[in-house]
Design a binder for these strands. Structure first.
Length: 559
RNA sequence: AGGGCUGUAGCCAAGCGGUAAGGCAUCUGGUUUUGAUCCAGUGUACCGCAGGUUCGAAUCCUGCCAGCCCUGCCA
């Protein structure tokens, strides 16, 4: 496509799943598209889920279909209401809507039971009294076929009675299960008479104590899809083998003998450098108190990233940039960072913050502090102007001063060298005070009063620009500088992933921000010029605490 | 010979028999009161390897190699 042609049509993602949908629609296999996002409420959503959410809800939007939010709540022992709440919040925050109330697999427990009975009646399921260990032995292994359970040939009538007893609580946990009768010699391990129902005397967050038998994922998921009229059931690669069971269940039930029943397609899950994506590991970080909680800004969770300052738009853009495929991949952090910078650069108001302050005294400025106007966004006048202050005493960043410029390319403040104070005047370093350790405490400067909004009249070239905050109006603030959570690209590969945590993943600094930020809103992004994108922490109330979302792109420090 | 998948530039990823899109990263210029942004330019990809079919193969066939997944009454 020519570059000129690009602006004509809205560009939609291209991937193998959308290709399949296009074909299905063209062949009128379906008249509309229905997808679903089916989290188990046993943890918080992370950026990997966001990929799936954007895929499923994105398809629904583009094809004028719908995407159900469905809680896959078939295992009450691991699930909790806390998670069903947080999951809904995160999906909403990302900007997606599901039709009506959220769905629950547990809504269909009665139907699942009836379908199980149908399988039993067809001689395709049986109650098995082998214990867990025996079941494992009977299953065989990757090289050798399994052998039939001694309960495999129980009569239909007896199985019906036994299953009814399972439901009415006459068997103990672990005493028996309902199994599908498929093929103990199948090369797909999941087809060696998989368990369909197990006994659990557990209180369920949705169904209370109504049930003491709960369906397994492989039985419940395809049926939930079928009941909801899902057309394309999208999941990750590790379920490729399970697809045979998904198909087996639907193919053996009368209700799904139709060409427009759901079909499963698998795509690769997201792996991001320098972080972990498994719920188990994230749980561990939280439980071991290695992070502040699920919403710690260093966590790859939606709530953590939100607190860190990521926007819904940036996460959706990220999902689009990485695409969908079946390749096992490891995505560079750079893609995520580029996506946030792209969004924030456009929408974030500019401000100045001094993160590691040293004092500057302007010796030839004796007056009271003065007010200056600065653009909220230099490339977008419609965002208006803001008030900043300039006076005799200022703060600048420690990194922006050195006594002697190291070379001609140095663009910051040095003695006997001029530099521009962003949005204000040109100043020149005169001398500096140091503490006992030799660290700069104060830099004494002069300013050129005729340089506000213009270059020096005599044509002097001033190359560098540094930021500052006027001391008497400065607002003390805490800055939390975040870095990658782990020191290695793929911590999941480590024997002990917690041993490769980055000790500098959080560095706290105390400095100053412009007075205009006094009532800044939590999560509102700002660009602290020359430093990066920050937002007010959403957990610290009135305290001036700013989280660094991401630093500005830096093409120079490495040289 | 257990089975299921995957291999296109440093990373992600289009392509589906007609002679390799795009994004990120990199590098080079230009603009700039953010060393940012923006603009322009920048790539020898043995299309995993080896054969074969074809006028023509990343695309079809065969054989190899490498990586991931599968033996929960988890999802």
């Amino acid at each position: 496509m020519s570059k000129a042609g690009k602006s004509e049509a809205v560009e939609r993602p291209v991937n193998f799943i959308r290709n399949i949908i296009d074909e299905d629609l063209a062949k009128h296999k379906y008249e509309s598209v229905r997808t679903r996002f089916p989290p188990e409420p046993n943890g918080y959503l992370h950026i990997g889920h966001a990929k799936s959410i954007c895929l499923n809800f994105g398809i629904a939007e583009d094809y004028d279909g719908a995407c159900n939010l469905r809680f896959d709540d078939t295992n009450p022992a691991k699930e909790d209401l806390e998670y069903v709440d947080s999951i809904q919040q995160d999906v909403c925050w990302l900007g997606f809507k599901w039709p009506g109330e959220p769905c629950y697999s547990s809504n269909y427990f009665d139907q699942f039971y009836a379908y199980a009975v149908e399988l039993i009646e067809k001689g395709l399921a049986y109650v098995c009294f082998l214990n867990a260990e025996e079941t494992r032995e009977y299953r065989g292994n990757l090289k050798e076929p399994g052998k039939d359970s001694p309960y495999r040939d129980t009569s239909v009538e007896e199985n019906l009675a036994l299953f009814e007893k399972m439901r009415s609580g006459e068997f103990k946990e672990g005493e028996c299960v309902l199994r599908a009768k498929i093929d103990m010699a199948s090369s797909f391990m999941c087809m060696r008479d998989p368990t369909l129902y197990r006994v659990r005397f557990a209180h369920h967050h949705q169904t209370g104590d109504k049930w003491c038998i709960y369906p397994m994922y492989d039985f419940a998921h395809c049926l939930s899809d079928g009941i909801e009229g899902v057309t394309h059931s999208l999941c990750t690669l590790e379920f490729q083998d399970n697809r045979r069971l998904y198909d087996w269940v639907l193919d053996n039930l009368n209700d799904f003998q139709k060409p427009d029943r759901p079909f499963q397609y698998e795509f690769s899950r997201l792996n991001l450098e320098y972080t972990v994506m498994s719920k188990r590991k994230l749980h561990q970080l939280v439980d071991d108190k290695l992070v502040e909680g699920w919403n710690d800004p260093r966590m790859p969770t939606i709530s953590g990233m939100r607190r860190r300052g990521y926007t819904p738009a940036s996460i959706r853009d990220f999902a689009e940039r990485i695409g969908i495929s079946k390749v096992d991949s490891m995505t560079e952090m750079g893609i995520l960072e580029a996506a946030v910078r792209d969004d924030l650069n456009k929408v974030a108001p500019r401000s100045m913050a001094v993160i590691d302050p040293i004092k500057v005294v302007i010796e030839n400025y004796q007056d009271e502090p003065q007010t200056l106007m600065a653009p909220v966004h230099p490339q977008n006048e419609t965002m208006g102007k803001r008030e900043i202050f300039f006076g005799r005493e200022l703060y600048i960043d420690r990194a922006d001063f050195t006594e002697v410029a190291p070379n001609g390319k140095y663009m910051r403040l040095a003695l006997d060298k001029e530099v521009r104070l962003r949005n204000a005047y040109v100043i020149k370093g005169l001398r500096a005070d140091y503490d006992a350790d030799g660290n700069v405490t104060t830099v004494y400067c002069s300013y050129d009063p005729d340089t506000h909004g213009k270059n020096p009249a005599d044509g002097r070239k001033v190359k560098g620009v540094i930021h500052f905050v006027e001391a008497s109006h400065a607002l003390p603030a805490e800055f939390r500088l975040y870095d990658r959570l782990f020191t290695v690209e793929n911590p999941a590969k480590e024997e002990d992933f917690e041993s490769v945590l980055n000790p500098e993943s959080l560095v706290v600094k105390y400095g100053f921000v412009e007075p205009g930020l006094l009532n800044s809103a939590a999560e509102q992004a700002y660009q602290f010029e020359r430093e990066g994108y920050f937002c007010r922490d959403n957990q610290c109330g009135d305290k001036q605490v700013y989280n660094r979302t991401v630093a500005l792109r830096d093409t120079w420090s490495s040289r």
